Amino acid sequence: NKASVVANQLIPINTALTLIMMKAEVVTPMGIPAEEIPKLVGMQVNRAVPLGTTLMPDMVKNYE
């Protein structure tokens, strides 16, 4: 099973992601793959992301 990106803390709306906000975890359903973490740094979330939430592509602005 591949790990996904999971919020390590509450991430407020429009916050630019940093490494300490994210962790890799095997979850179902899968979200953004953990190997994308370096690419996510500096990208903004378009909603508040609660602690423990799996990051999905539609939660990150301009994620492709």
Rank of each mutant, 00 (worst) to 15 (best):
T53P: 00
V6P: 00
T18G: 04
T53W: 13
M21A: 06
Y63Q: 03
P12T: 12
L51K: 07
I37F: 05
K61W: 11
I20D: 09
R47P: 03
P57D: 08
E36D: 13
N14D: 14
V27E: 03
V27I: 04
V41H: 10
A16I: 03
T15H: 11
I20F: 08
E64S: 13
Q9T: 11
L10K: 09
T15M: 07
K39D: 04
N46E: 06
L51Q: 09
I20E: 14
D58R: 04
G42D: 06
M43K: 12
E64G: 14
V49A: 03
K39T: 03
A16H: 06
K2F: 15
S4F: 03
N14M: 08
M21F: 08
L55D: 01
M43R: 11
L51N: 10
A34N: 05
M30W: 03
M21Y: 11
L40H: 01
P50R: 04
V41A: 11
I32E: 00
M21W: 04
S4D: 00
A16F: 05
I32G: 00
I11F: 01
Q9N: 03
E35M: 04
K23A: 08
P29D: 14
L55R: 01
K23N: 05
D58P: 09
K61N: 07
E36K: 10
V45L: 13
E64V: 12
T28V: 07
I32V: 15
Q44F: 06
S4I: 02
P12K: 04
M21E: 04
N62F: 04
P38N: 08
G42T: 03
E25I: 04
Q44D: 13
G52C: 12
P50T: 12
T15F: 06
T53E: 09
N1S: 14
I20V: 12
A34H: 12
T28Q: 08
L17A: 01
I37C: 07
P57H: 12
Y63C: 14
A48C: 14
L55Y: 01
T15P: 01
V27Y: 03
N62M: 10
S4P: 00
P57W: 11
S4T: 11
N8G: 09
A34Q: 06
P57R: 14
P50S: 10
K39Y: 08
K61L: 10
G42F: 06
G42A: 09
T54M: 05
V27G: 06
S4G: 13
Q44K: 10
K39P: 13
V41S: 08
K23L: 12
A16C: 15
E35S: 08
Q44Y: 12
E36N: 12
T15R: 07
I11N: 00
M22F: 10
Q9F: 09
M22C: 11
K39N: 06
M56H: 04
M21Q: 05
M56W: 04
K61R: 07
T28G: 11
T54R: 10
K61H: 06
A16S: 12
N62G: 15
K39S: 04
M59G: 09
V60E: 00
I11D: 00
S4N: 02
L40K: 00
N62E: 12
V6L: 13
L10I: 13
I13N: 13
P12V: 10
I20C: 15
M43T: 09
L55M: 11
V5Q: 01
L55A: 00
L10E: 12
V41K: 07
V41Q: 13
M56Y: 06
T18V: 07
L40N: 01
E25Q: 07
N14F: 11
T54S: 09
M22P: 00
I11E: 00
M22L: 12
A3G: 06
M43S: 11
Q9H: 12
V27L: 10
Y63M: 04
M21G: 05
L51F: 10
K39R: 11
M30C: 15
Q44M: 06
V26I: 03
N1P: 15
P12H: 09
T28H: 08
E35F: 03
P38E: 05
A48P: 05
E36G: 12
V49C: 06
I13A: 13
V5F: 01
L51H: 08
V26A: 13
E25S: 09
V49K: 00
I13D: 11
N1Y: 14
L19A: 12
N8F: 14
T54L: 04
A16N: 07
V41W: 05
A7S: 05
N46V: 13
A24G: 14
N62Q: 08
M30Y: 04
G31W: 02
I37S: 13
M59E: 14
G42Y: 05
G52L: 13
P50M: 11
V60I: 14
E35R: 02
Y63K: 03
P57T: 10
K39L: 05
T28M: 13
E35K: 03
L17K: 00
M59V: 07
I11H: 01
M30E: 15
N46D: 14
G52W: 15
N1L: 14
L17V: 07
A3R: 02
K39V: 07
L40G: 00
I37E: 06
V45C: 07
M59D: 07
N1A: 15
V27M: 07
N1C: 15
A34L: 03
M22G: 01
A7G: 08
E25G: 09
L55W: 00
S4C: 10
V41G: 04
K61T: 12
T18L: 07
K23Y: 10
N46A: 11
G31A: 05
M30I: 14
V41T: 08
M43E: 03
N46P: 04
T15L: 04
E35W: 03
M22D: 01
V45I: 03
V60N: 00
T28D: 15
A24P: 06
M22A: 02
Q44P: 15
G52H: 10
A34C: 15
V45S: 06
P33A: 10
K2M: 15
I13S: 13
K2H: 15
M56C: 15
R47W: 04
M30K: 02
N46M: 13
G52A: 06
I11V: 13
M30Q: 10
K61E: 12
V26Q: 07
K2C: 15
K2P: 15
T18Y: 04
P50E: 14
P38M: 02
K23V: 10
V6R: 06
P57V: 10
G52D: 15
M59R: 02
V27D: 11
G31E: 02
A3N: 04
A16W: 05
L55P: 01
N46F: 08
E25W: 05
V45Y: 00
M30T: 13
L51T: 14
P38W: 04
L51G: 13
A16L: 07
I13F: 07
I37N: 02
V45E: 01
L55C: 02
L40W: 02
K61M: 05
R47A: 12
P33V: 13
N62P: 03
T54I: 04
M59A: 08
